[in-house]
Amino acid sequence: WKVTVKGVEYTFDNPEEAKKFAEELAKKKGGQIHYKDGEFQVH
């Protein structure tokens, strides 16, 4: 499971962890999460 933040990729074994990480980042940066092709992208 991948989380991509401004072109930087983070990989997680667990989808729950990936989702949590993406949500935290989106909150911090005031961005939005897009889920696409099996990965979370924070913009």
Rank of each mutant, 00 (worst) to 15 (best):
K27W: 06
V5K: 00
I33D: 06
F12T: 00
K2G: 03
D13K: 07
D13Y: 05
F12Y: 01
G30A: 07
N14E: 04
I33Q: 03
V5P: 00
K27D: 09
F12L: 00
G7T: 02
L25S: 06
T4A: 02
V42P: 06
E17C: 09
H34D: 12
T4V: 14
F21G: 00
K6D: 15
V5R: 01
K36N: 11
T4H: 04
E17Y: 03
A18M: 04
I33L: 10
A26I: 14
D13I: 05
G38K: 12
Y10V: 02
K19R: 14
A18Q: 01
L25R: 02
E17A: 11
E23K: 05
D37C: 09
H43L: 14
A26M: 08
E17G: 05
E9Y: 05
K6E: 15
F12W: 01
E24A: 10
Y35S: 08
G7C: 08
E23P: 00
A18D: 00
V8S: 05
V8K: 11
Y35G: 07
K29D: 15
G30K: 08
V5A: 11
G7H: 02
Y10A: 01
A22P: 00
V3N: 00
V3W: 00
F40V: 05
E16F: 12
E39W: 08
W1C: 14
Y35F: 12
E9R: 04
G30M: 08
E23R: 03
K2M: 06
V8Y: 10
I33G: 04
K19E: 07
V42I: 14
K36M: 11
G7P: 01
E17S: 11
F21C: 12
E9G: 02
N14L: 05
E9V: 13
G38E: 05
V5G: 03
G38Q: 10
F21S: 00
V42C: 03
T11L: 15
E17N: 07
H34Y: 13
K27E: 11
F21M: 03
T4D: 02
I33K: 02
P15D: 02
K20S: 09
T4L: 08
A22D: 01
K2D: 02
L25Y: 12
E16N: 10
K19C: 14
A18P: 00
N14Q: 04
K20Q: 12
K19G: 04
F40M: 06
K2Y: 05
E23C: 14
K2H: 08
K19Q: 12
G7S: 04
E17D: 13
Y10D: 00
G30T: 05
Y35N: 07
G31H: 07
T11G: 04
D13A: 09
G30W: 04
N14S: 13
I33W: 06
E24T: 09
D37T: 01
F40C: 07
E24H: 10
A18I: 01
D13W: 06
N14I: 02
N14K: 06
E17P: 01
Q32E: 13
V3G: 01
G38P: 05
I33C: 10
Q32Y: 14
K20P: 00
V5T: 08
A18T: 00
G7E: 05
G38V: 03
K27H: 10
K27P: 02
Y10I: 02
E39V: 12
E24M: 12
E24D: 12
Q41S: 09
E23Q: 10
Y35Q: 09
Q32V: 14
F12A: 00
A18R: 01
V5W: 15
T4W: 06
K36P: 06
K19A: 09
K27N: 10
F21K: 01
K6S: 14
A26L: 11
F12R: 00
E39F: 06
K6A: 15
G31N: 07
V42R: 02
H34W: 08
K28P: 06
D13T: 10
T11W: 15
Y10L: 02
V5D: 14
F21D: 00
G30P: 05
T11K: 12
I33H: 03
K28Q: 13
Q32P: 06
K20R: 12
H34F: 12
K36G: 10
K36H: 13
K20F: 08
P15S: 08
E16Q: 10
K29Y: 15
V8A: 11
P15G: 08
G31W: 14
A22Y: 02
P15Q: 14
G30H: 09
Y35D: 04
F40S: 03
K28I: 13
F12P: 00
H34R: 09
Q32C: 15
F40D: 04
Y35K: 07
H34T: 12
K28D: 13
Q32A: 10
W1E: 03
D13F: 06
H34K: 08
D37A: 01
Q32G: 08
K2V: 11
K6C: 15
E9F: 06
V8N: 07
G30Y: 06
F40R: 02
G38F: 11
G7Y: 02
K6P: 05
V5L: 10
P15W: 15
K20Y: 07
K29M: 15
G31Y: 11
V5H: 15
F21L: 02
T4N: 05
Y10K: 02
V42E: 04
H43N: 11
T4Q: 03
K29V: 15
W1S: 08
T4E: 03
K29W: 15
E23W: 06
Q41N: 07
Q32W: 13
F12V: 00
I33E: 05
A22G: 02
A26H: 04
A26K: 04
T11Q: 12
A18L: 04
K29G: 14
V5N: 06
P15L: 15
F12H: 00
G31F: 12
A18W: 03
H43E: 11
G7V: 01
Y35H: 07
K19S: 07
Q32D: 13
D37M: 00
Q41T: 12
A18V: 01
G38C: 11
A22S: 03
D13P: 08
N14H: 07
K28T: 11
V42H: 03
N14W: 03
K19L: 14
H43F: 09
F21T: 01
E23N: 06
H43V: 15
E39D: 06
F12K: 00
